[in-house]
Structures are given as C-alpha cells and as structure tokens.
Design a protein around this nucleic acid. Structure first.
Lengths: 207, 207
DNA sequence: GTCTATATCAGGATAGAC
DNA sequence: GTCTATCCTGATATAGAC
C-alpha cells in the first residue's frame, strides 16, 4: 500500500504567507496600478520568480489580497466585545463609538476602504465581496437588533439601520478617509447623541 | 508709445483645453497611476512635447483636472432647479431624488468619486478641495434650510443635515459606486420616505 | 509653440541553473 | 521550488528642428 504522503501540493505556504504579507502592504499603500512587484519582492524577502510561481500575475495577487481582507477586516462586527444586555440606546451608542474608534485606530482599514472604492470601477467583484462580507453583515445585524427591540418603536428597521450606518460611514469618510474633519467639524458625541435621538422614538419613556 | 500688444502670455488656451479634456477622460478612467500620457496625447490630438510645455509633469496635470472638476461638478447644488415654495417634506424629498438621479445619470460623477476617495491618501489636498467645494456646500445649505423652517422642529439641524446627506451618500456608494445595489436591495422611495419620517418631527401636523 | 524623434529607465514577466 | 540574470515592452520626460 502506498505510504500516506504528507499533503504539500500547495506550494510551500510559508513563502506564500510572506508574499501575501508584502503584497498587502504594497497594494494598500499604492493601489493596484501604483503597486510595484519589485517592492513586494523586497518586502517579502523572496525572489521575483517565486512570486510568479505562486501567483499567475499581478492581478491575481491583488484580488487574493483584497478578498482575504474582505473576510478578515471587521468594521461592524463588534458584537462580541459588547454587552448585549445594555439598554438599546446605550448599546447603539457603544456600537457606533466602537466602530468609529476601530476605524480611527487602524490605518489599514482606511487604506482598505480607499482601495475598494478607488478600484471598484475596474474590480467590481472586489467591491461586491466587500459589500457582502462587511456592509451586508453590519446592516443585517442592526436591522435584526432594531427589530428585536420593539420598545424602540422603529417604524422601518431596515431603513433605520441604513440611516444609522450611512451616517457613521459618511462621518468616517469625511474625517478619516478624506482627512477633512476640520473643514466640516462636528463633535463626535453630539453627532452620536443627536443621531440616536432621531432614531429612537421621540416619546421615549424607558429605553 | 508702445502698441498695446494682445495678451497671450498664457500658452495658447486652445490646446490647453484639448489637453485638459483628454486628460480628464484618461484620469477618470484609469486613476492617477494607471493613466498614460500617450493616451492623453492621442485623445487630445497634440504632441507629447506640447503637453509638457503646458504642464510641468503628470502630477500637475492630474491636480489641475481634479481641482477643476471639484469646482464644476454639482452633486448637491440642485437648488436652482427646485421650487423653494414647496412644503418642506416635499422639498426635501425632491432634493434627495434629484441628487440620486444626478449621480445615476452621470457616470462621470461616479468615476470622479472613485478617484477622490481612491487617491485621497496620496493627494489629500484634492480630497479637501472636494469637501470644501461639494460636501460643505451641501451640508451648509441643508443646515440652513432646516434652520429656516422651524415648523419642522428639528432639534439639531447640523446633525440632521449630516444624517440626511450621509444616508444618501451611503446609498449612492452601495448602489452606484460599488455596483452592489442588488446585494443589499432597498426600494428607493421607501428609503426616502422612511428617512424623511425619521427626520421630520413625529407629531407632524402641517408640513 | 509645436512637432518628430529619442533618451532613459522602470515595469511585469520568464529562462535556466541549482 | 527557489534563485539570479535577463528580456522587452512601454512609461515619463526632453532635445532639437521648424
């Protein structure tokens, strides 16, 4: 009987990791067209030929990176870190705060967003993967949450979730992505408080 | 006395126009790094040397184009086309509708947004020009409008303007920029109606 | 001021030894 | 499977004639 040979058809995942690591930096920093294979090679500490033995071309490497990030990056998945038992208005404000902090603290998220939007014309599949893995998850979670808390008296949870996330994303785009927070300044707590006031029923008694 | 010589220090603005025209197409379609001077030359119908006589380098040409577009492009300036005398809720819905239509009908707006966001890391000044000329204008107009209509009972017009525009921008990003409207579908009228319901006071009597 | 022709060099991708 | 060395296309930018 044939000896069970250790699975290793996939070309040495050690180098693959190095390449992906270096490529991620490079693509995030320079975009697709601006990325240089030479720099990826240097950052990864491998030879150029090795890169091309693991990935057919630059485009394949790029899509691999971005798709991987769409799975890993969490912008809205803060559920685990949070206390579900808080009152809804407290929970929602925490949720929004965490989301804003996450983005501000992780510059990779910003460059990732820039890439997704910037290349969405040439790589629509990547944009769609982003929407499925990140936006959709956040929207559906919030919709569910709003639906599950009838005391909030949300008339249209689906739209309310969009308004909530849309406001946050817009804020992130102005402040962090476009680096223009000072041009249209607003205090963050004021934004969140007034936003929650709009969303939760006006005649709030015991939220 | 010296004969008044016809002003022509600016290198033939005829060619300049052609170059800018061609460059706009090229940069919008391929981004900064992906744009090729050769294609600009071809589209403009001039020689490469002429381009470099009018602009010091690729980057200068790029920033000229984008800054020009930030002045010309109107996403939120729909005031002139609208009847100010409508009731606020009608006006606001018209305003939002017009804005969504404008974007959907003009693919240049989409590629412009992609460029601004995509290059905002490397060209922050362009991003800031965009915010000043487009976002800020929209936000301030809406804030003013909400303030001027006290019957709406807007507690915080500044934030409400952001919520309104943020929701619209987010919708545009998902549907048009990222081309993923089908992945997180929502009927446009439902979005606008529910959004307005959130914004205008619940106890609406005569808006 | 505008063109043609060209310098210069960097990019992605591969051949062939080990 | 990995490296070194190289191919070759095509990019930005310029020199020099008109």
């Amino acid at each position: 009987m044939t000896k069970a040979k250790p699975v290793e058809r996939e070309l040495s995942s050690k180098k693959t990791e190095l390449i992906l690591e270096g490529a991620m930096q490079e693509f995030l920093e320079h975009g697709y067209a601006g990325a240089r294979i030479d720099r990826i090679v240097e950052a990864a500490g491998v030879s150029k030929a090795t890169v091309y033995r693991h990935f057919p071309d630059k485009e394949a490497l790029f899509t691999a990176i971005i798709q991987q990030m769409s799975c890993r990056k969490t912008i809205f998945e803060l559920q685990s870190q949070q206390s579900f038992e808080e009152s809804p208005s407290v929970f929602l404000k925490q949720y929004a705060s965490k989301m804003l902090d996450n983005v501000a603290e992780d510059p990779q998220v910003l460059t990732f967003l820039r890439i997704i939007v910037g290349e969405s014309g040439r790589f629509p599949e990547l944009a769609r993967a982003f929407v499925i893995n990140i936006e959709k998850v956040g929207l559906e979670f919030l919709t569910q949450y709003l639906t599950n808390h009838p005391q909030l008296q949300i008339a249209d949870p689906e739209v309310t979730a969009r308004v909530f996330i849309g406001t946050l994303i817009h804020f992130v785009i102005l402040r962090d992505v476009l680096q223009s927070g000072d041009l249209v300044p607003i205090e963050r707590d004021r934004l969140l408080d007034s936003l929650l006031n709009l969303i939760v029923s006006k005649n709030e008694v015991s939220l």
